[in-house]
Design a protein around this nucleic acid. Structure first.
Lengths: 143, 143
DNA sequence: CCCATTTGCTTGACATCATGAAATATCCAG
DNA sequence: CTGGATATTTCATGATGTCAAGCAAATGGG
């Protein structure tokens, strides 16, 4: 069994974990909703977001998404069919196909980022000082 | 780094959003990994976690998961086929089927919770006082 | 240079998860 | 008692995920 010994967890830590769970749920919800407004699934939106910054080989997309490369084929297929992404040959390696966002795709990605309500709404409840504290705590948490 | 903000968003807020994104990514990764150790998918683990606390109608599971009830049928089917969950009639309403975790299911849920490294590792970096501050900020954020 | 191996991508078969429409059984208000 | 709402399931469909097999191209040892 790989199951580690059940560590005793104090109520405070337990509550923080639960709160983080809620944040995670709300984050995903907002992300999917924003994607749906542009007729995209969550996975498609993530890939488009990646490619809007710079073209990249299919292989690297799979690494970023932590999934199999064969999966990326389909996602890029659908984005390509809608003119948001295109495949280009890599001059340095003819095996590689570089996926790149088209102008339309970049536009969509930009509008998608802008429509992500998560950034504004929940954080608006916090003062500047509180946001700074939150940032420091999260930084520390993530090491 | 994130592309230039399309909407006016101050750098502090932007950084907090990005940190939350990182937390979310790590959280999902750990959750799926922990679930996989018990031969469960993420959705199955979530449902089992819900039912390990108390039995509940299919309808309510769908609400918690924010998905269609027809979807829950399949997930509970698979959990039931493995003896982790069972369907019981609701004595108060014969339309309703209560899904309940079996003893085996509760065991699995407990071990799953215990193997969730996310609770211990990142939060261990924070002092008791910091955890309390983080809890308060998250509470405020979630309204 | 040659060939075996590795690497990048695609394809196919299959399971899970999500939606929506339609069917069935039950509840409830009037 | 009847008509409309509710709870669940089934079916069709599509997106996402895995894995194994296949092809093309790169790479490295002899």
């Amino acid at each position: 069994m790989t199951a580690p010994a059940p560590a005793p967890m104090d109520p405070l830590t337990l509550e923080v974990v639960e709160l983080i769970g809620t944040v995670v749920a709300r984050y995903y919800e907002e992300y999917d909703t924003a994607a749906a407004r542009h007729q995209l699934t969550g996975a498609q939106a993530r890939v488009l977001g990646l490619l809007s910054r710079e073209p990249m080989p299919m292989r690297r997309i799979a690494e970023q998404l932590k999934c199999e490369p064969s999966n990326v084929t389909g996602i890029v297929d659908r984005l390509e069919a809608r003119g948001l992404v295109e495949r280009r040959p890599d001059p340095a390696d003819r095996r590689v196909k570089l996926a790149a966002a088209t102008e339309t795709g970049k536009d969509t990605a930009t509008r998608l980022r802008a429509s992500l309500g998560f950034a504004r709404e929940p954080l608006a409840a916090l003062s500047e000082h509180d946001r700074a504290t939150l940032r420091d705590l999260l930084r520390q948490m993530l090491g």
